[in-house]
């Protein structure tokens, strides 16, 4: 595993596109949280929030708020992963790595390392963002209540990155994979969720990324939706989220292990 990590490090160490994208992706998390935190903490809105019993940017609710907002910023990490993987097909190094002495499954492990690394980087940045915002915009002492929302955020990231990996190994071309990934995560799934929820029922909430969204409602809105009772228990969404991750990773292995490179 150490050897895989070292080899992947050699691939990106001098790859400027990667570092610039990582920088932008990482900055987007605090920036994306700072703007709503600043606006909603203006005096009037702050009063309104207090009447509802909690400030979304104070402890402990800030964990949930930051997890919710950060989950909109996942796409850039997905695009990074797509570039890292489709590069291997464009340069045909996916073949060369095997020829030179990797097992095919090691190629998959190497890319799963990126799923893990990128998701952990995003998680750590989101945690730091929540801590800073919680202190800056809230009046309460730090508390870990509701920290589990950040784990849901992380699981949703892992799923989104695994989907990006699957698209990359299936389609092999960066532009194609990116278009499908963005199209699906940004609009197509939302449309399906809406139609399913309207015409079928809460089963619409079980689509891959939506399962994560269901676990990550914006604090105050979520309470109102939950009160309407039209949803499953959190454990069901969690189960589906983990199930989807396992399924997608299985499909990646199956594709890479069985087909011609």
């Amino acid at each position: 595993m150490k050897q895989l990590l070292y080899t992947e490090w050699l691939k990106v160490k001098n790859y400027r596109t990667f570092w610039i994208m990582l920088l932008v992706a990482v900055i987007m998390i605090p920036a994306g949280n700072y703007v709503p935190a600043d606006i909603m903490s203006s005096r009037e809105l702050n009063q309104a929030a207090k009447m509802l019993g909690q400030s979304p940017f104070g402890f402990p609710t800030v964990w949930q708020t930051v997890a919710n907002i950060s989950s909109y910023m996942t796409a850039l990490f997905g695009l990074m992963l797509i570039i890292l993987v489709t590069n291997e097909y464009t340069f045909r190094t996916s073949r060369q790595n095997i020829i030179d002495g990797w097992e095919r499954r090691q190629f998959v492990y190497a890319k799963l390392i990126w799923v893990l690394l990128l998701s952990v980087i995003a998680l750590v940045v989101a945690i730091l963002t929540a801590v800073v915002i919680g202190f800056a915009y809230g009046n309460n002492a730090i508390s870990l209540e509701g920290f589990s929302y950040l784990w849901y955020y992380w699981l949703q990231l892992v799923l989104a990155l695994s989907l990006a990996l699957l698209l990359a190994v299936l389609l092999k071309r960066a532009g194609f994979a990116m278009a499908i990934f963005l199209g699906y995560t940004m609009m197509l799934e939302q449309t399906l969720v809406l139609l399913l929820k309207r015409y079928v029922g809460p089963v619409g909430g079980l689509l891959p990324l939506q399962a994560g969204d269901e676990l990550l409602p914006f604090p105050l809105v979520g309470k109102m939706v939950a009160a309407s009772g039209d949803r499953y228990d959190d454990s069901i969404y969690l189960l589906f989220l983990v199930g989807y991750i396992a399924l997608v990773i299985y499909l990646v292995f199956r594709k890479v292990l069985k087909s011609d490179l």
Binding site: T7, L10, N14, F91
Partner: peptide, 20 residues
Amino acid sequence: NFYHYLSGYRNLEIAAAIKQ
């Protein structure tokens, strides 16, 4: 088959790492 954005030397570093 090599990484286009890396130098010849760095590409061989990767090959050496994989070949151990």
